[in-house]
């Protein structure tokens, strides 16, 4: 798998907080959904977020990406309070599958390229560089053959890969996924989880994933949550021991 387009400039520090939540509260129509939540995800953490329906998982994600405002408390991304945060190209986001209109006449490459659009690209044309990035992302997720197909005609697993490609195409440092394995068969789920763990091991990426996938939680993230807040459970896996920070070598070695 060639994911070289994801490698970024080297960081000096290894354990910078990427997501910090300080006393975050949120209510929905008078009901407290999230109460005084404190949590920190550090660089290259893989965070699995679990919890029963209505526990506030999607609410939390929406607050993180600025779609909802916390009632009180503070959220920081990359150390910057959300209100002042502008580097949205550092964040890749894969919303729940149901969010798009399946009859929308968009091709896979149109969708993937749209991952490159942000505030700073307004009025700029899509050029050769963007097309290159798009084909690299398609290649990395093994969906190059689907580039010209319409997104609504793909299978669930293929759509999932297309949306992940869109999230990755801008070389983000933080990847936020909302139940990426919902509604696809077990085999596709497994290969998707393998893809994610590969990305986690070999690239400079921090993950936050909402998931009900018990197997992924147990086998990859451990059986005990690192932190529980209300009905939200945070399972955390770091890519390496804290003392190995200097070993920032992320090359693929001989693998795959």
């Amino acid at each position: 798998m060639d994911t070289s387009f994801l490698n970024q400039a080297e960081r000096v520090l290894c354990h910078d907080p990427i997501i910090s939540l300080e006393d975050v509260c949120f209510s929905y129509e008078g009901m407290k959904v999230i109460e005084r939540l404190n949590f920190v995800a550090r660089e290259r953490d893989f965070v699995g977020l679990a919890g029963s329906n209505g526990a506030g998982k999607t609410t939390l994600l929406k607050m993180l990406v600025g779609l909802l405002k916390p009632e009180s408390g503070q959220i920081k991304l990359f150390g910057t309070p959300l209100a002042a945060f502008r580097d949205w190209q550092r964040v890749g986001y894969v919303p729940q599958k149901s969010n798009f209109n399946p009859l929308f006449p968009a091709t896979v490459s149109e969708v993937v390229t749209s991952g490159l659009y942000n505030r700073s690209t307004i009025f700029k044309r899509v050029g050769a560089a963007e097309k290159r990035k798009c084909s690299a992302a398609l290649e990395a997720l093994d969906i190059s053959a689907l580039a010209g197909r319409k997104i609504g005609q793909l299978s669930g697993g293929q759509q999932q890969r297309a949306f992940l490609a869109r999230a990755l195409v801008g070389s983000p440092e933080l990847l936020i996924l909302d139940e990426p394995t919902v509604g696809v068969d077990v085999e596709t789920q497994d290969s998707f989880v393998r893809l994610l763990t590969h990305l986690h091991q070999h690239h400079h990426l921090t993950f936050l994933i909402v998931t009900h996938d018990r197997e992924m939680l147990a086998s990859f993230l451990g059986s005990e949550p690192a932190q529980t807040a209300g009905r939200l459970k945070f399972y955390v896996k770091h890519s390496h021991a804290p003392e190995d920070c200097e070993v920032a070598e992320l090359s693929h070695g001989g693998d795959e």
Binding site: R86, Y93, P95, N99, E110, S114, Y117, N118, R119
Partner: peptide, 19 residues
Amino acid sequence: KEMFLLFFDEEAAAVSGLP
């Protein structure tokens, strides 16, 4: 291209910082 993203997936458009 911004309108494409906005109408295809409003959430993703918001997350990429589009006005």
